[in-house]
Amino acid sequence: MQATIEVTGLRKRFGPTVALDGMSFTVKPGQVTGFVGPNGAGKSTTMRVILGLDAVEKGSALIGGRPYRSLRTPLRHIGALLDAAALQPSRSARNHLLWLAHSQGLGAGRVDEVLEQVGLTSVARRKAGGFSLGMRQRLGIAAALLGDPPVLMLDEPVNGLDPEGIVWIRGFLRSLAAEGRAVLVSSHLMSELQDTADHLVVVGRGRVVADTGVAGLIADTSKGRVTLRTTAPEHAMSALAPVGATVTVIEHDTLIVSGLPAERVVALLNADAVPFSEVAAHRATLEEAYLDLTRDAVEFRGATR
């Protein structure tokens, strides 16, 4: 079975609002793919279409080459976490996983394995209604892992997690990808995907805005930018601006200079006797890269869906 998700030309409307407008992308095995976009860009709808929950007017979504609704034991093909709060509060964590396991022809042994994997063994027999959001997220991830699927899809898994939980889930997702699984993780905050995602699918207004590797994207965004640390920012700006550099103040003592290589910056500062403590090639954050990518589509932020 191929560990892939292939989404092709999805179109869907909710009344007059276009929710999906030709959404197409592929999730490949062995890496974590970030699925990013502002709220209302169509991430959750796309995921629900992939999982056969929502119908589309056009297009197809395939898991390992097959539509979700044709899968007989779907949890063995794809594990998904959509809404960690979707629990019967009076049912214990273990029993929640147990009925899911039974629906896939799996036994209680597999339930105990995934509970161990997400670190919920000690609270397995407690009612899920008393769980914190973090524990619910872990339980949702345990449910996604139940069928040991080659494809995993998690909608905003970091939401509501404490810092320790965030570190845990990042490591966990990386290890799942390292095992050769295809992992799709959605988020409306790019920073959450820093150090997690290998690949990005950026969406806005129901379609893909960018589909790119993370390493290349950061390199592209960083290219030609120099970080300058100085005690005299105004002095530095007046030295660099006349020769065509674009200078942005990001902190009171830190400037980003673009349009000039680092050596030219050092020479110009020395010539003007501007004091500085650091000149370095800039390493962009994923957030900056994302803002760069979506600058042309700022109107997304005003859109309601």
Binding site: P29, W99, L106
Partner: peptide, 27 residues
Amino acid sequence: MTVTVNRSGPGGPARLLRAEWTKFRTV
């Protein structure tokens, strides 16, 4: 990669009934 899930088990309808029964008895 290998999927190491035991595939022997009850057939479709039996699986569904067992899952729903588990749902009922665990509340």
